[in-house]
């Protein structure tokens, strides 16, 4: 029971915070917005982690299930035993990323896309989500209206008073090089960059495994990305 995955999970302080003693009441699943739409059940995740069953935890880490959580933390507010499945899932995600288990599931593999988009957005623009990179063809979930917004970006943002890509103050303003440099150093010191590397590392292994190889015999991450986009 006291084996690798369990101790990895337990080494994260969030687990202690998130899991005291679950009694299977199911209120977390009842309140969970994700559970309404996906085959996703925070109660059973909490129970699996509580049982400490190494095999089942390994399955969990390699599954789609842990990626459905929207981290709204509604579960925390309702739990009669002061558990927080949302935090348990954060820990599971982290362990899944660190051990490379995430590349085994469709939802997990998308971590690579997120690093490449949101992750790099932060470093390059200073924003997680920047309107200029949300190409309508990649984001069907935004609906057809997004295409119009994208094409008339300048007018739309100006009309709401934003300073899109502009110098000086205002929302969506251009972030200065010095600030970006500082952000970069924070990421380096805090381990954020290392984290990006880990995800990239395992994703490359997966890309090779799936046969995405370029002429140099290395992982062809372009094709892998296309594959991931199709997988969504």
């Amino acid at each position: 029971m006291h084996s690798k995955l369990n101790s990895l999970l337990k080494s994260d302080v969030r687990l202690e915070e998130g899991l005291t003693a679950c009694m299977n009441c199911g209120i977390c699943t009842a309140i969970c917005p994700a559970a309404e739409y996906f085959e996703y059940d925070p109660r059973s995740i909490a129970v699996t982690v509580q049982s400490g069953n190494e095999e089942e935890i390994a399955t969990l880490l390699e599954s789609d299930t842990i990626w459905y959580c929207g981290q709204c933390m509604s579960c925390k507010t309702r739990c009669p035993r002061n558990n927080c499945p949302g935090l348990i899932i954060s820990v599971l995600r982290k362990v899944s990323q660190e051990t490379g288990a995430f590349v085994q599931s469709r939802m997990g593999r998308q971590q690579y896309l997120i690093v490449k988009n949101i992750g790099m957005n932060i470093l390059n623009y200073g924003y997680c989500v920047h309107p200029t990179i949300l190409m309508p063809e990649n984001h069907p979930e935004q609906g057809p209206v997004w295409k119009w917004v994208y094409e008339n970006m300048g007018e739309v943002y100006a009309s709401v008073g934003a300073n899109l890509n502009g110098d000086g103050p205002g929302a969506m303003r251009k972030i200065s090089g010095a600030d970006l440099g500082e952000l970069h150093r924070i990421f380096k010191e805090s381990g954020g960059l290392k984290f990006y590397e880990t995800i990239e590392h395992f994703s490359k292994i997966k890309a090779l495994e799936l046969g995405f190889v370029n002429e140099n015999g290395e992982a062809d991450m372009e094709k892998y990305t296309q594959h991931l986009l199709q997988e969504i």
């Binding site: 005291t20 003693a21 679950c22 009694m23 299977n24 509580q50 049982s51 400490g52 035993r81």
Partner: peptide, 15 residues
């Protein structure tokens, strides 16, 4: 006592 059994003593409850 039930809470303690779960928290401190890691007793597993299977329904």
């Amino acid at each position: 006592l039930y809470l303690e059994a779960q928290k401190r003593h890691k007793i597993q409850f299977i329904r």
